[in-house]
C-alpha cells in the first residue's frame, strides 16, 4: 500500500493535491465536486474587500501548451464571500482554503479577518495576481518588503488558522520574497501564480484576444519554470511549499514533490481532465511509487536536493 497523505502546517491532506484558486471554485457545490473528484484540499476563488465583476470576456483562452487568463479577480466581495466560504467549509469534507486579495496592506488584514469567521482549514493570501496591475500596481509578491507587510497585516488580525502566502514566478527576488514572508509569519508558501502576463493576438482581427489584452500564462508550458521556482523556495525557507504550475499527470506531481513541494496545486489540468483529474493524477502517483519502492509520498518531498 502506498500512502499519499501529507500534512501542511498541521492540516492533514488525504492526497497531496490541491484545487488551485480561481479554478471552478465559485461555490460550495463545485468545491465539493472537486473534493469528490479526488482533491486532498480545495481552494475557493479569491475574495477581495468589495464585489468585482472582473474583466470583460474573453477572459480565459486555450492555446497549444496551456491557458492564458485575465479573469480579473471577479468575486462577490468579502461579506458574500465569507458566507460562500462558510457554506463550503460546512459542505466539503476535505480541508477548504480561503483565498483572498486586496490592493493595500490594510485590506489584506480586513479580508483575512472576515474570511477567518468562516473557519476555513487554511487561508491563502493571493499576493501575486498578474492581471490587475493597472488598478492595483505591481503585485505584492514581486518585492520582499511588500510581501512581508501584507503577511504581517494578516497575521496581526488572524491567529489559529495557518496562512499560505501565494507567490509569483515573475520576480528576480524570489528567494528573498520567500524568506521575507516566512520571517513575517507565513506558515506555508504556494509557489505559485501564473507566469507573465502573456498575450495572444488574433491575426485576422489584428487585436489581442483577451479583453485585458494580457493575462497570466498557465499549463504545461510553465511547468519547468514552476519546478525551478519550487526548488529555489525549498532551499530558501523551512516552511512547507505547495508546488503549483502546469501539473497534469502523476509524473508531473511527483516531479514537483521531488523539487521540494509537500503538496501540489492543480489548476489548468481541470480544463482537460475535468473534476476527475485529481483521481487520475493520484492513481498515477501511486502506480509510480509502488513500482519504485516508495511507501509514502512524504519520502519524496525534496528528494532531488539530497
Amino acid at each position: 500500500m502506498v500512502e499519499l497523505g501529507v500534512e501542511l502546517a498541521g492540516v492533514r491532506l488525504s492526497k497531496p493535491l490541491i484545487l488551485a484558486s480561481g479554478i471552478v471554485g465559485v461555490s460550495a457545490a463545485t468545491l465539493k465536486r472537486a473534493a469528490k473528484g479526488g482533491a486532498g484540499a480545495v481552494t475557493m476563488k479569491s475574495i477581495g474587500p468589495e464585489p468585482r465583476s472582473g474583466h470583460p470576456n474573453p477572459t480565459v483562452l486555450e492555446w497549444e501548451c496551456g491557458l492564458v487568463n485575465a479573469v480579473g479577480l471577479s468575486n462577490p466581495g468579502m461579506e458574500e464571500g465569507a458566507k460562500d466560504l462558510a457554506a463550503a467549509v460546512k459542505m466539503v469534507k476535505a480541508p477548504v482554503i480561503g483565498s483572498f486579495f486586496a490592493k493595500d496592506v490594510a485590506g489584506f488584514g480586513d479580508v483575512a479577518a472576515k474570511l477567518a469567521e468562516a473557519k476555513p482549514a487554511m487561508l491563502e493570501a493571493n499576493l501575486s495576481c498578474p492581471n490587475t496591475m493597472r488598478e492595483s500596481g505591481v503585485p505584492f509578491a514581486y518585492e520582499p518588503e511588500h510581501a512581508a507587510e501584507a503577511v504581517k497585516a494578516v497575521k496581526g488580525r488572524v491567529s489559529g488558522i495557518p496562512l499560505i502566502a501565494k507567490l509569483s514566478p515573475n520576480t528576480h527576488l524570489l528567494k528573498e520574497v520567500a524568506k521575507a514572508v516566512e520571517a513575517a509569519g507565513a506558515d506555508v508558501i504556494n509557489m505559485g501564480n501564473t507566469l507573465g502576463p502573456g498575450m495572444i493576438i488574433n491575426l485576422e482581427a489584428r487585436k489581442p484576444v483577451l479583453a485585458n489584452k494580457a493575462g497570466g500564462v498557465s499549463g504545461p508550458a510553465i511547468r519547468p519554470i514552476a519546478v525551478r521556482c519550487v526548488w529555489d523556495v525549498y532551499e530558501a525557507v523551512k516552511i512547507p511549499v505547495i508546488g503549483t504550475g502546469g501539473v497534469c499527470s502523476g509524473r508531473d506531481a511527483l516531479e514537483m514533490m521531488m523539487a521540494g513541494a509537500t503538496a501540489v496545486g492543480i489548476g489548468s489540468a481541470v480544463a482537460g481532465g475535468g473534476f476527475k483529474v485529481f483521481g487520475k493524477i493520484s492513481k498515477e502517483m501511486e502506480e509510480w511509487m509502488g513500482k519504485n519502492g516508495f511507501s509514502s509520498a512524504k519520502e519524496l518531498i525534496g528528494i532531488a536536493h539530497r
Partner: peptide
C-alpha cells in the same frame, strides 16, 4: 459564462 470550457466555474 466566462471561459466556456469548464475552468472558471462562473456558470455553476
Amino acid at each position: 459564462m466566462k471561459c466556456g470550457f469548464g475552468v472558471c466555474g462562473q456558470c455553476a
